[in-house]
Design a binder for these strands. Structure first.
Lengths: 130, 130
DNA sequence: CTTGACCTTTCCATGATGGGAAGCTTCAGA
DNA sequence: TCTGAAGCTTCCCATCATGGAAAGGTCAAG
């Protein structure tokens, strides 16, 4: 199949498929006589794997490692789990950050009347009047 | 004061101060005879304002609006509150995404033995065997 | 007068993705 | 058979906030 069909079938945009190839996350695709990239079902499988990993928030560097482990029959599941747990930790860190921001903002907006008057605890807080 | 002191005093890196100036978030700083940027306490105040807004996760476009509102004595607090609430919504969206990822990953890692054997539900899930 | 800390500008990089231009290929329909 | 549309190619640029490095000017203390 051509790149468009592979894109539709995997949920990875054609743009990104080319990009993944260019950074070596995917091996160079086979080409038709006219130079069109051609994809097999196995390629599609790999693309879906990458897509799923992206959906879980893995960065491309880690995905590279995951693909490698996936294709390694002698892998130790320990390795995979280690990557996943490190990723969970990173996500939890971001989650904490977000939660703190949200809580702070909720406090501020709850205190702001939000009418036509200029007094605003949100602005006051940003200005460091606290 | 010079840019380094302004940076230390505001928590905004010198690099970023120059950048904010270049994109018009800050007005061009006054200059010494030798061309060094010079900052007043008022400038420092603005920098701290920006820093606080960044800490709450606002993007620079919104911060531009917030600074503008801060300096507008006739502002309506409604405007500020609207920006803050829109931002909270955006953050909540990201939070949901993160939570879903974390939950999915926690399920998977809980099922993975993480030993020397290759069987791994994490990899299986990514490969779409589910 | 030298040294080291500080400042200047300019260019490049990140990470993941998208947009667009200019040009070639393929296929279906008139 | 011609034509037009859709699909493909590569290459360059943009995002967003931030950092790094290079090459050079400035300043203060020893």
């Amino acid at each position: 199949m051509n790149i468009g069909e592979a894109a539709r079938g995997s949920g990875v945009s054609a743009k990104m498929i080319r990009h993944y190839e260019s950074i070596g996350l995917l091996p160079p695709a086979a080409r038709s006589e006219a130079g069109y990239r051609r994809y097999t079902d196995a390629d599609l499988h790999t693309l879906r794997f990458i897509r799923h990993a992206r959906d879980l928030g893995f960065d491309l560097g880690t995905i590279r490692a995951l693909v490698s482990l996936w294709q390694d029959r002698g892998r130790e599941s320990r390795e995979v789990k280690r990557l996943a747990e490190a990723h969970i930790d990173a996500l939890r860190g971001k989650l904490d950050q977000l939660q703190k921001m949200i809580i702070a903002l909720e406090h501020l907006t709850a205190c702001c009347r939000g009418d036509e008057r200029p007094d605003c605890p949100i602005i006051d807080e940003l200005a460091g009047s606290s």
